[in-house]
């Protein structure tokens, strides 16, 4: 067991004018434990008012993305032993979204962008009685994009998104790719206007922050580039 100094960003909207500030806790932990375990120990043993989201605790539900030592990560997958200094860690809410309380951010804007890209299969041809066939190669094209857990680590790490909050951002564009490149989808025409403008794919300047931040190791920038290629190579 080691002692870990945990600096947590605190903000309580019900405490009047108090601005976000850091509070420090000392927590005993095994180095194989996760940052989420540190937060739980604070909440359950020291200060029940600490607010954060979490659920599955193994990187599939996407609830616990936060800034850990300056980088967007899932708290449930961040091993204490992998920290820069396992005896000290700083935990903050995701950048660029409004903070509701402590580590909990307002995700409304993030999910609105998700809805804008028409995140569903568009196919107006009546389906066959069995499955629509899809080759192994066509399925492979969308495989990586279906790994996304909508944790927002990418979009909130994107400098283009910081500068222009209207930008759809990497998560929504990745979702768009997932359907645009699905061999069963016929909705590209409906999606062009959404993607082919200043708040769409062209706002991505291949900075690769999203790739670095993605806890599912998705090469998001590559996917956005494929969308760009698809748009420029279309015949009108």
């Amino acid at each position: 067991m080691i002692k870990v100094n945990v600096r947590v960003s605190r903000f309580n909207p019900e405490e009047g004018n108090v601005k976000p500030h850091f509070e420090e806790f000392t927590v005993e932990a095994d180095p194989t434990e996760k940052v989420l375990d540190l937060l739980h120990k604070i909440k359950w043993e020291q200060d029940g008012t600490l607010a954060f989201r979490r659920s599955c605790a193994h990187g599939i539900c996407g609830s616990c993305a936060m800034k850990i030592d300056g980088r967007n990560m899932l708290a449930c997958e961040s091993l204490i032993s992998n920290l820069k200094d396992p005896t000290r860690v700083t935990v903050e809410p995701l950048q660029s979204l409004p903070v509701l309380k402590d580590l909990v951010v307002d995700m409304d804007d993030f999910f609105k962008k998700y809805e804008i890209v028409k995140p569903y299969l568009i196919n107006k041809t009546p389906p066959p009685t069995k499955e629509r066939y899809q080759s192994v190669e066509d399925r492979e094209l969308i495989d990586e994009s279906t790994k996304c857990i909508q944790c927002a680590a990418c979009t909130t790490s994107c400098p283009s998104n910081w500068k222009n909050p209207q930008f759809l951002g990497p998560a929504a564009l990745l979702k768009s790719y997932r359907y645009c490149f699905d061999s069963r989808d016929e909705g590209m025409d409906e999606r062009i206007r959404i993607l082919d403008n200043g708040d769409g794919v062209w706002r991505c300047h291949t900075i690769f922050n999203c790739v670095e931040a993605c806890p599912k190791d998705i090469n998001i920038t590559w996917h956005i580039s494929e969308l760009k290629k698809k748009l420029v190579s279309r015949e009108y």
């Binding site: 569903y120 299969l121 196919n123 389906p127 009685t129 069995k130 499955e131 629509r132 066939y133 899809q134 080759s135 192994v136 399925r139 969308i142 495989d143 279906t146 359907y179 699905d182 069963r184 989808d185």
Partner: peptide
């Protein structure tokens, strides 16, 4: 039920001939 899910767009893994 599974065919219906496929029609909704579920990305099932495929056999060499393209079936679920």
């Amino acid at each position: 039920a599974v065919y219906e899910l496929e029609h909704m767009g579920v990305p099932f893994s495929r056999t060499p001939e393209g079936k679920i």
